[in-house]
């Protein structure tokens, strides 16, 4: 089974992101692999272990991805880790586009059986790249899935729908996005990291980008701080909330 996994990195602590004169300043940020991408990569590795002859290729479409992200993917067990290099990606459409192009370049006419992505990246939370990528590759999209059972021909998946748990059935090829709960990603030790350092980190150059569909136009910092009024007793609080009109929907 040929599996491509799309990974990216996000700030470890969002509080390290600063805004300077309407622009984002990410210079103090420490980066980690997007947690949802870890679920995607872990699931790919589990499938690889179950289906002999499988190969997992991790793709990172972030110009500033850095070696650490690719090394982590290799240490977890990816066969290859590829950074797709391009000018700054403006929106989800451009990100999906460079990933689709890289997948085309790597796999040729024979597309991978599965493309796994995280549900969304924790920094911008657009949750758009997986579905857009599916559209570009001409594959159906299933996600965000919380369970996956695969045999050689079919996949059965579960996801949280608006009305409860949905069960999906699909054939290959397919783009899947991973939700929390799908698995518990493996930890990597010194030995795996040392092994990974022996492997080659590949870099692939993206061709000219299409125009973005949405463009970043500035930012401002937000303070979540409120002036908390401390209340001594539960009945005082109940009185305050009652006068605030919060109990109008109460059942009595």
């Amino acid at each position: 089974m040929h599996i491509a996994v799309c990974i990216c990195q996000v700030p470890d602590l969002p509080s390290a992101v600063a805004v300077v004169d309407g622009s984002l300043d990410l210079s103090r940020v420490a980066w980690v692999m997007n947690p949802y991408d870890e679920y995607a990569l872990e699931e790919a590795l589990r499938l690889k272990e179950r289906f002999p002859g499988s190969a997992v290729i991790a793709l990172a479409a972030a110009p500033e991805a850095g070696k650490e992200l690719l090394l982590k993917a290799l240490a977890m067990g990816a066969d290859r880790a590829v950074e797709v290099s391009s000018s700054t990606l403006q929106d989800s459409f451009q990100t999906a586009w460079v990933l689709a192009e890289a997948i085309g370049n790597i796999y040729g006419q024979e597309l991978p059986d599965l493309v796994l992505c995280g549900r969304e990246s924790l920094d911008l939370q657009n949750a758009s790249v997986p579905a857009m990528l599916a559209g570009m590759l001409g594959m159906p999209f299933a996600g965000p899935v919380t369970a996956l059972r695969a045999d050689g021909e079919r996949l059965e998946m579960e996801r949280e729908g608006d009305d409860g748990l949905e069960t999906l059935e699909a054939r290959y090829p397919l783009v899947i996005s991973a939700e929390k709960g799908l698995n518990i990603p493996r930890k990597t030790g010194i030995r795996q990291v040392m092994e990974a350092r022996k492997k080659t980190l590949e870099i692939m150059q993206a061709s000219a980008l299409p125009d973005p569909l949405v463009r970043f136009a500035g930012a401002e910092p937000v303070s979540l701080k409120k002036a908390c009024r401390f209340v001594e007793t539960p009945s005082e609080l109940a009185g305050l909330l009652h006068r605030g009109g919060f109990f109008n929907t109460a059942q009595e």
Binding site: P11, P14, S15, V17, V19, L24, D91, L122, D123, L124, Q125, D211, P212, L213, V214, R215, F216, A217, G218, A219, E220, P221, V222, L224
Partner: peptide, 17 residues
């Protein structure tokens, strides 16, 4: 379109193209 990013700590503006 103004929307919250980075866990709600930044309010960013996006222009549809």
């Amino acid at each position: 379109c103004r929307r919250y990013i980075y866990s709600g700590l930044v309010l960013a503006a996006y222009r549809p193209e």
